[in-house]
Design a protein around this nucleic acid. Structure first.
Lengths: 236, 236
DNA sequence: GCAAAAGTGTTCGCTCTACACCCATGG
DNA sequence: CCATGGGTGTAGAGCGAACACTTTTGC
């Protein structure tokens, strides 16, 4: 163990770094996986987009900082948030040493959210597969978070967090297909959801659709928690 | 996007934090999962044990810092290392704000390593299941890393990194049983390893054992990489 | 009546599980 | 000869994959 005075000295002096959080905010619009970005005005990245982030304040955890960024920038509270990993290349930030802790979060793209984005010209919602370059190392962060989202989506019932509280089975299937980049068999998918027992019919059905109306389902949290103890996997 | 001057100000002044790495170093001694710890001399944790860690230097990544700690403290290079997550409770360190990035690593407990530990009185090797309390929030970090190790062990061929380069199938099975806390069927386990095709016989066998000598196997890295493309799981 | 999505069962192959005995060696 | 772990095969169950047609609605 290193001498305490060396520690004290390093902690209080030039071994300090700025620590930030960066949030990869995913949404889904019944077509594509989207990401919420911000216009960047910092040289040399002017006119590029960046993730939503901020420096971590002295009296908050990184989780709290990420949550604060989400609430401040999106107006939404009660957001699903998951820490992904730290990025710490010494030259990743033009203003000096900034180590960032990345998070991804899942939001529902509803009209309120779209209005919020429209009212804030610095915000933009892009399709993930159309994002080819971002400020800083944010493209790398986005890709890392996307990979982690895909993995978690196969192992945990997260898809619901990207959908409205009531949704049809086709919406849910399309979501998995589009985020995971796979195709699924309709009958197998529906049987799977059925046997998992974590969805309940809401009793409502679609209206004004030019085809047979679909039933609306919702995610049954308590049934899920009963199941999760014995291991859980979607199996695709 | 926040004004650049605010950023600059915060980065350069009191929003800075010390950033450290903490390494959960796992080993396996043919009996139990072990962890390498260090005696702690920092109040109020005197006479407790802590993880091996250090502050991150200005010109290195956290990966590099973790690797540096491992080489400096264990004498081993070429160690498997995986970032787990950041811990950032504002009061987690008595000397001030220290955000830590945790890593776990897997080492082989051979005679060289045991000699190294014996030669350094500040180091101690303990059975993971006998560690009930550690300095700082290191018990929480250890538990988090153990959970992640168990998950990764089921999904990736990591077990080999805890064993000598040549090992018997029983050694391997015992490792999985003891780290995952499960029991496995001998025949099914052997068939599984066989069909995965990632083990090769070395041609050598045990000697001086009071029973039929076992074959030594080694992990066939290239066969694994051929397989891994199509998804990989041990299925237990 | 037509376009468009909803909804529904069966078969096949693979994988996991459970289970018991003989073999080779050292002492 | 005995104790110890090494090493082997088979049968049953459950799960994922493949696959096609009828139903309901709006226009």
């Amino acid at each position: 163990m290193k001498n305490i005075n060396i520690w004290l000295d390093q902690i209080q002096n030039d071994y300090k770094a700025a620590v930030s959080v960066d949030c990869v905010i995913f949404g889904y619009d019944d077509q594509n996986l989207k990401i919420l970005l911000s216009k960047c005005d910092m040289p040399p990245f002017e006119n590029q987009f960046s993730l939503l982030g901020d420096i971590v304040h002295p009296n908050e955890t990184t989780d709290e900082a990420a949550y604060r960024v989400l609430v401040e920038r999106t107006g939404i509270s009660n957001i699903y948030l998951e820490q992904v990993q730290a990025f710490s290349a010494p030259n990743r930030h033009p203003l000096g040493r900034v180590i960032t802790i990345s998070y991804y979060s899942l939001i529902q793209i509803d009209q309120t959210f779209l209005d919020h984005v429209a009212a804030h010209p610095d915000l933009i919602l892009k399709s993930v597969n159309e994002v080819h370059t971002l400020a800083f190392d944010h493209k790398l962060i986005m890709d890392t978070c996307l990979t982690k989202l895909q993995k978690n989506l196969r192992e945990h019932p997260l898809g619901f967090k990207l959908l409205p509280s009531r949704f049809t089975l086709l919406q849910l299937q399309n979501l998995y297909e589009s985020v995971l980049g796979i195709t699924l068999d309709k009958r197998n998918f529906r049987r799977k959801m059925n046997t998992l027992g974590i969805l309940k019919e809401s009793g409502e059905i679609e209206s004004d659709v030019p085809h047979r109306p679909a039933k609306y389902y919702y995610f049954d949290e308590t049934a899920y928690h009963d199941r999760v103890e014995l291991g859980f996997s979607f199996g695709f």
